[in-house]
Design a protein around this nucleic acid. Structure first.
Lengths: 322, 322
DNA sequence: ACTCCTCGATATGTTGTGCATATCGCGACT
DNA sequence: AGTCGCGATATGCACAACATATCGAGGAGT
């Protein structure tokens, strides 16, 4: 039994006439009769009753037709669905992100994406550590990552491509009653005697804050590491030390903590969109494109750079491979 | 696109391997590759990703497969459903019946039928007049009729076949306080001066009661016609006259009315099962068979007789033809 | 009652295509 | 470097799906 048999039967029943059905199918009447007979032989029972006034289905034919039409519809749906996915009009993209992205990127692109590509479904998955998110990406559990991580300057033969979304400055987070809290900017050197509370950004490369401190002539003293910017602001307000956080995160205002720019300015690892270089998914391309448009990113996908090699190595150590 | 393509794709994905899938399909590997390629060409996008470790579906392939499996399942279901209907294991039988059958035949055979043939669905339709039920049968709105109607002695070339289910005697229905109400049997001649209330049985051939009265030497006086036995018993109890009804209907006891046999016994048209002679439905055969078994009818379906010719003529006058 | 006409079935020939056999190309592993 | 595994490609064959021609039966029309 082939779809041809189903198509032929449906058409004969539709026209109640072999000749007209054959013309509609673009064949002649004899082969149509043959195919229907072959189908009836396979079923083991007549499906059509040939009367003088035309043709009508038997009870068995009715039962057959119901499912036959469904089968034809499913076959068409298969074709259509595959084409839409291939064209990138439909699909599922699993996006892993860190808390940094919750306030900025996610809420900004989800709505425009849904408006432009209503059949692309984004499955978001939050990870506390960027490293875990990237590990999920490498494993294939995620198709894209949005987080802060160190990038190289060119793509080369990298397995992960990265598109920095926006530059970000590091501010110092001071308790409200700190002597420097009222200033417009704080020279890094003035922080020589402070204890620092950092987010896990600093846990791995490129240790951007250490670099800045050494440039100012001292080695920073670390009071602690915390996950999440609001936690950081909280412990700073409680007096544990001064904090460091991307300037863009201060909109989550915490009373008792103040963000102040430092000079010379220190750049945080930018919020970055990462995906697998071998991922040919058109849906992913649509998501990347929408994020670029919404955030006004000038770099194009083909300008994507590689993720820092040492970082990727760390990911693999963490279970990137299955 | 044919079912073959879907079957092949599903099998390749199942085995993640062209060679093994080909063996499972009973063909060799090259034509399998060809068919998959042809399918991909028709879709316009690759459905499989050929890696060194085997084969796995692309995103488009996943979308396609979901519907492809459904299409194959529907095709199988079409075959199975048609076969079951052809074998009489499933189907729908529309049974038209008159109130006479509600108390007797219907409740007796529906449960055994469901137990023996769970996939045969009976669609019951009640008609006040047997004539309307038979008209529905002739039109094709019903597949069988259960009702009281006059039958001939042989089938011949009749378009409707009839199987009498049970003989039935006509009783006289008397008001409780009627002088004859206490008797075991009432001679027909003793009813000479009564007025009669009849059901529509008498409206058409063969006027069995008139025949009995004339045999007793008088012409019956008709007080009225009512539909339904309980209505008849009611108006009899109210004193409109004496009634006539099949003896078997008295179980619907109405206080104030008494059923008494007459002598010589008068036979009512038997409760009869009727169907179209050209109906080849196996489901109908199962229904007929079950009714025969349940009611202990000895006559077999091939012993079925014809419906009275004049009756059929009356049906056609009533709109039997569309 | 006769022919004509319609419509599906049957008969016969032709072509496309689905399958088999044989071979190739390309990574991966030893 | 050699071998192995696997899918793609090349080539030939055989069948089946289709076309053309004809048949046969059942109405409809005159």
């Amino acid at each position: 039994m082939e779809l041809r048999h189903l198509r032929y039967l449906v058409e004969v029943v539709r026209h109640e006439h072999f000749g007209r059905a054959a013309r509609a199918l673009g064949i002649t009447q004899p082969p149509l009769s043959q195919q229907i007979q072959a189908l009836e032989a396979e079923v083991g029972a007549p499906l059509l009753e040939r009367t003088r006034h035309g043709v009508e289905p038997t009870a068995a034919g009715e039962a057959f037709l119901e499912h036959a039409r469904a089968a034809l519809a499913e076959a068409d749906a298969a074709l259509a669905a595959a084409r839409r996915v291939a064209r990138g009009e439909a699909g599922t993209v699993s996006v892993a992100f860190t808390p940094s992205a919750v306030d900025h990127v996610l809420p900004q692109f989800l709505t425009p994406l849904r408006r432009r590509w209503p059949d692309i479904v984004v499955r978001p998955a939050e990870y506390t550590l960027t490293l875990d998110a990237v590990a999920a990406l490498v494993r294939g559990d995620a198709d894209a990552v949005i987080g802060r991580l160190p990038v190289a300057s060119a793509a080369g033969q990298a397995s992960l491509l990265a598109l920095p979304l926006q530059e970000d400055r590091v501010d110092v987070v001071l308790p409200r009653n700190h002597p420097l809290a009222g200033r417009d900017r704080v020279p890094v050197a003035r922080l020589r005697d402070e204890s620092f509370v950092l987010t896990p950004l600093e846990e791995r490369h490129p240790r951007y804050w250490h670099v800045a401190c050494r440039a100012a002539g001292f080695e920073p003293r670390i009071a602690g590491l915390v996950h999440g910017v609001h936690t950081l602001a909280g412990v700073v307000a409680a007096g544990l030390g001064v904090g460091l956080a991307p300037q863009s995160t201060q909109r989550r205002g915490t009373p008792g903590a103040v963000f102040v720019p430092v000079s010379p300015a220190v750049l945080a690892p930018p919020l970055t969109l990462v995906w697998r270089a071998d991922d040919r998914s058109e849906s992913l391309a649509r998501v990347v494109g929408t994020i670029r448009t919404v955030l006004g990113v000038e770099a194009e996908p083909q300008d994507a750079v590689a993720v820092d090699r040492a970082y990727v190595a760390a990911v693999h150590g963490r279970g990137g491979a299955p």
